[in-house]
């Protein structure tokens, strides 16, 4: 499902605020929005929009992802190669359940999740550096 840019941004802001303050997302918000910064900056994941599609906590948090923030990133396996083998996001984002996260087939959809350094800077309130002369 395509999310609007603005919604993603607002959610990214909320998510980043939690990350910055080191406060885990509350249960009421179903985990809030997560901004992953490893192995690349930065990828956004919005819990709410996934809950809205009818998924339960244990759809993903029963083997695919641990509850603790950062555990996927620390695994060293949180990447597209691993997704292609059905791990992490790749369990659903395989081109049939949801849009594919397999690198060779994901043409044009990268920025649905990838918000980049600029997205991360905005989410953390840091001003993005402008090009020369602007």
């Amino acid at each position: 499902m395509k999310k609007t840019f603005i919604t993603a941004l607002v959610l990214a802001l909320v998510g980043a605020t939690f990350l910055v303050h080191g406060v885990g997302a509350t249960e009421e918000e179903h985990g809030g929005t997560i901004v992953f910064t490893r192995p690349v900056k930065a990828v956004v994941f919005d819990h709410q929009s996934h809950m809205d599609m009818g998924y339960e906590c244990d759809t993903c948090h029963d083997g695919l992802f641990e509850y603790a923030t950062g555990s996927a990133e620390e695994s060293g396996e949180f990447n597209h190669k691993s997704f292609a083998e059905g791990n992490y996001c790749g369990a659903c984002h395989d081109g049939s359940t949801a849009f594919t996260a397999v690198l060779d087939k994901a043409t044009g959809k990268c920025t649905l999740c990838h918000i980049g350094v600029k997205g991360l800077d905005r989410a953390s309130g840091k001003e993005t550096k402008k090009p020369h002369g602007d």
Partner: peptide, 23 residues
């Protein structure tokens, strides 16, 4: 303060209420 290469960003309208980032 300078760069030899950088990344620009823009938003594309891809639907009535749908926009997409492009780098």
């Amino acid at each position: 303060y300078g760069y030899r290469t950088t990344i620009l960003e823009r938003e594309l309208t891809v639907g009535p209420a749908s926009r997409q980032r492009e780098f």
